[in-house]
């Protein structure tokens, strides 16, 4: 069984997102892409790069 992504960076990579173009909150707190994530964590990915 796939254990799922272990870090925020792995999660972003799996979704095809650039770390430069998003910020990520884990359980409401901003974390870097190297932060670990678990099955109970609430992850909010906020896209920051918009427009022309």
């Amino acid at each position: 069984m796939d254990p799922g992504p272990a870090t925020v960076g792995e999660l972003l990579g799996g979704l095809g997102l650039h770390p430069q173009e998003v910020i990520v909150a884990r359980n409401g707190t901003l974390v870097p892409e190297q932060a670990a994530i678990g099955g109970d964590d609430e992850i909010r990915i906020i896209r920051i790069a918009h427009g022309g």
Partner: peptide, 11 residues
Amino acid sequence: PEKEIAAYLFV
């Protein structure tokens, strides 16, 4: 960097 601006506001 753009990401630091977003993080600056978020925190």
